[in-house]
Amino acid sequence: MKLGLVVDLDTCVGCHGCATACKQWNTSGTIGPLSDENPYGKDPNGAWLNRIRTYEVDDTPNSKTVNMPMSCMHCDNAACVTVCPTGASYKREEDGIVLVDQDKCMGCNLCSWACPYGARELDPQEGTMKKCTLCVDRIYDEKLPEDERKPACVMTCPTKSRVFGDFDDPNSEVSQLVRDRAGKQLMPELGYEPVNTYLPPRNKPVVEMYETTSLKDTVKGWVNKVIAR
C-alpha cells in the first residue's frame, strides 16, 4: 500500500478548514500536543501540520487565484528519514506513512532542513519535530464508522478537494483522479518522489473584459452616427 492524498487545486477555496481540523484532531492525537506559543498575544507561533498558501498564476486576463494546501507528501524517497540521527523519523513499510517517534526525537531540526515541502515544524514547547501523520490514528480505528476512517482534513473539506486513498491500487479513487486530471507532483526535480498529488485547475474561458469609454467618445460616436445617416 502507498497511502496519500490528492488535492484538487481547481476546487479548493482556501478556507483553511483542513488546517484547523488537522490541528484540532492531532493536538490530542498520537503525536500531540501541537502547542502554540503566545496564541492570543501579539506574535503567535505554533506547530501546524498543514498550511494553505495562495498564489496568483499567470497574468490578467488569464490570471487565476490558486489555493495550495500543503501537508507531508509521504515521499517514496524521503531524505527526512535518512538524515535523522536518532531513528525518530521513519517510514512505515506497510503503507508508506512517514512518522516521527516523539519519544526518540532530539529536536535537531535536520529533518526539517531535508524536507523540500516545509512539512515539518518544531513544536515550540515540546522541542520535538511534528508532522502530518496521515491521521494514522483515524484511518485504522475500527471503532469509527467505516466512512469516517479518513484523515480529519479530508473529512472536513467543504468542497471535497482532498481525497485520501491507496496510490498502489490502480482502481482507487486517487489513482483514477491522477490519471483523469493529469495529477502533478511538486518540485519533482529534487527526486523525493512525493506521493501526494495535485490536480491542476481546469481550463476555463477567459473572463470577458468590459472596456470603458469616455463621455466624449460616446457623444462623438453618436454624432458621427447621426451625420452618416
Binding site: N45, Y55, M68
Partner: peptide, 30 residues
C-alpha cells in the same frame, strides 16, 4: 528550483498572494 517547479505551474508566472498566516512560524524563522 524555481517558484514554478515548486507550485507545478511551469508555463506561467506565479506570484505569492498570501502565506496563510498572520505572524511568522517555524518555517519563516528557520
Amino acid at each position: 528550483s524555481t517558484i514554478n517547479t515548486a507550485t507545478g505551474f511551469t508555463q506561467a508566472s506565479v506570484r505569492l498572494l498570501d502565506q496563510g498566516h498572520t505572524s511568522n512560524g517555524f518555517l519563516n524563522n528557520e
